[in-house]
Write a protein that binds this DNA or RNA. Sequence first.
DNA 1: TCGCGTTTTGTGACCGGTCACAAGAAAAAA
DNA 2: TTTTTTCTTGTGACCGGTCACAAAACGCGA
Lengths: 350, 350
Amino acid sequence: MGTKSTVTIRDVAADVGVSRQTVSRVLNKGPNVKPAVRAKVEASIERLGYVPNISARRMRGSRSYLILAINDRQRTYDNWRAGRGNDWVDQMLFGGMTECEKHGYHMVFELIDTEPAKAHAQLSKVISELRPDGVILTPPHSENGDLADLLKGQGIACARVGRREGHGFVDVCMDERAAGEQATRHLADLGHQRIAYLAGSSEYGNSLMRLDGYRAILENRGLEQREEWVGEGAFSFDTASKVALQWLKSKDRPTAIIADNDQMAFAVLHTVERVGFRIPDDLALVSFEDTPGVRLSVPPMTAIRQPTAAMIAQACEGLITESSGIDASGCYEMPFEFIERDSTARFSQD
Amino acid sequence: MGTKSTVTIRDVAADVGVSRQTVSRVLNKGPNVKPAVRAKVEASIERLGYVPNISARRMRGSRSYLILAINDRQRTYDNWRAGRGNDWVDQMLFGGMTECEKHGYHMVFELIDTEPAKAHAQLSKVISELRPDGVILTPPHSENGDLADLLKGQGIACARVGRREGHGFVDVCMDERAAGEQATRHLADLGHQRIAYLAGSSEYGNSLMRLDGYRAILENRGLEQREEWVGEGAFSFDTASKVALQWLKSKDRPTAIIADNDQMAFAVLHTVERVGFRIPDDLALVSFEDTPGVRLSVPPMTAIRQPTAAMIAQACEGLITESSGIDASGCYEMPFEFIERDSTARFSQD
DNA sequence: TCGCGTTTTGTGACCGGTCACAAGAAAAAA
DNA sequence: TTTTTTCTTGTGACCGGTCACAAAACGCGA
């Protein structure tokens, strides 16, 4: 069907014998069009292979059919250089595109700097250039209030991943506390009595919520809580390795460890190997995130799986709804998955 | 600097006391503008915080400042669902955006179906909507000649990742044969005499080139070549596991294995564990790709690292060059890296 | 039948840039 | 000095849609 050149709305209008505006109304599912006319227009669109030009639509019109996905440059760089085993962008692409396609939207990925002043300037520039209907801010930018305000000031809908206020924004998150509980409960159910928690950072809200969940279960089951069994691993391999080594060498060592992210879980894995222990026999291990490497590790790890794709899909849906004039702000809590693999087993006394 | 509303080219023109067209010429670095005028316009742009509206530019103008990155839906889905440990998109984002930013371009990621007819229709639709300056086709779509022709027919520049013809297209690839040689040479240098090659698929050109490299080195070093030491793993975990198991149980078993992708390398890793051998003592292992999981495996794997980010950056550069009217077609071969980690060691006779 | 409200359709202007072409200014040639 | 050429600048139309508003067609009660 080699469409000769570009088919425009005027071609369709001429073909059917109606005005441009009528065709436009059909395209936008406007209300006041006779069913018979609508059908004829739709048939013509189909036959001529007409596709609306997104740029033209945005010129006079208000919608741009574009959603901006903002990623952190540093994190992307790190993933690129050091190979953190993060599949965040993959997840975004899958979750976001699937949703966007349904509504005729497209996703533009942008990288902006972590440093707040730079981030502000870069975001400001890109929204002027592209004028998207909505912007998704991912961590750490979702924590940056200035960026959200900038968008709000420009009348651009904004979704934040990993936040939970939801006042005027589309916030998507998961129930971190429940995830902390789930991981701990799983280990308690397996008979573990000495469960350690390798936290990320005490400045990171989500980290604290998980820790709350962990403590709640210990409390609830009457398990021993020791100050030194909550370590801070700074989300880093090296720091986590040190903490893990200390635990493993102590007498009365923990028989299970929950790691706040995969990076630290791998640190534990390597430390265990170094000390000559085996997982899950000598130590049970649960990780958060469930990025790809986790499933291929030896042994594959039991993990909380963050619903990244679902969160982004939800963010897109919210933004698209907002851009059609309906308020969709609020906090959307997406369900996580708990995936039991081979790094956890029933605790045996021997 | 709360820019009140939208600053347009007319505002700048009025501010400087010059016509729109002159401002436009400055923006596009057109030739015939007096230096003094140019400086004044540039100062005004800076002061007013003017940013050109990409959509408006594309309406009458010819350039869109948009590059489309086409990804395979199935592969993205698989990565999402099964967690293949692929960081392809991450790499694309990093490599592509870095290059695009330099030239004021943006990247739009799209997912299209693997099935050729669907892929054609979907690509056709998206280029009509977005009218990008260039499109990057990634595997498997880079192998689909119809898609490239469709783009060519519409006058849209096209870059293909993993192809090497370069006739009218910007093809980017790496030297697969040299990579195959490198991996094999490394093992030979370590004293291995029985080196097996776990190939992906004999229908995949790049796979064959690596295999050529492997054979060339064996030949060159006078090492034994056995038919059964070249296995076909279909790029899949399960198939590769079977092949690996057979090799490991055979007497005169290979002492080193080269796996055509990470997925299969992991299969070998798991099989070795199952059989009770150890890497690298009982078997040396080299993988291609070097996706993130590989660096965190126990032990971390020696691998050929595909220059994904560099290839995408090169693709972007080529497309942007083309869109400014200069022919940039041809085949660009990007250098790969060889990263020695702990899965390979000197062969010991005992 | 007429009048009035509602639904359906059409018209011209417009969004913010760039293109084609024309006109004015400056430099080179006669 | 005049003419020709080249450089610089400006003007109106235009890209392909949508908005605001006007006009026409329809429905229905009086």
